[in-house]
């Protein structure tokens, strides 16, 4: 998957989990999602969905570096196996 495809999937997960929220859909991909109300608990849900969808495991030590949609997309591209599904 290329960056745009991964981004589309992550954005879709965000909508599934948190609903249609302009503050999230309009959020620049390198702005922390926390600024749009995705607190640490919600971020755990998002990471869980990303792990599931792209068939990868995000170790605890990597979590603190994942603050934006862009972080997530780059992480998926770097780590997702060939079995990534959407």
């Amino acid at each position: 998957m290329d960056e745009q495809e991964v981004l589309d999937v992550v954005r879709r997960l965000v909508v599934e989990l948190f609903g249609e929220r302009p503050e999230l859909s309009d959020l620049p991909i390198d702005t922390p999602v926390a600024t749009a109300g995705v607190d640490s608990l919600r971020l755990m849900e998002l990471l869980y969905a990303v792990e599931d969808t792209f068939d990868l495991r995000i170790p605890d030590e990597d979590v603190n570096a994942l603050k934006t949609i862009g972080d997530l997309v780059r992480y998926v591209i770097a780590h997702a196996g060939a079995s990534g599904r959407s």
Binding site: L41, M44, E45, L47, Y48, E51
Partner: peptide
Amino acid sequence: ERAHPLTVV
């Protein structure tokens, strides 16, 4: 192998 992160709460 993993529980949903909100299972506890």
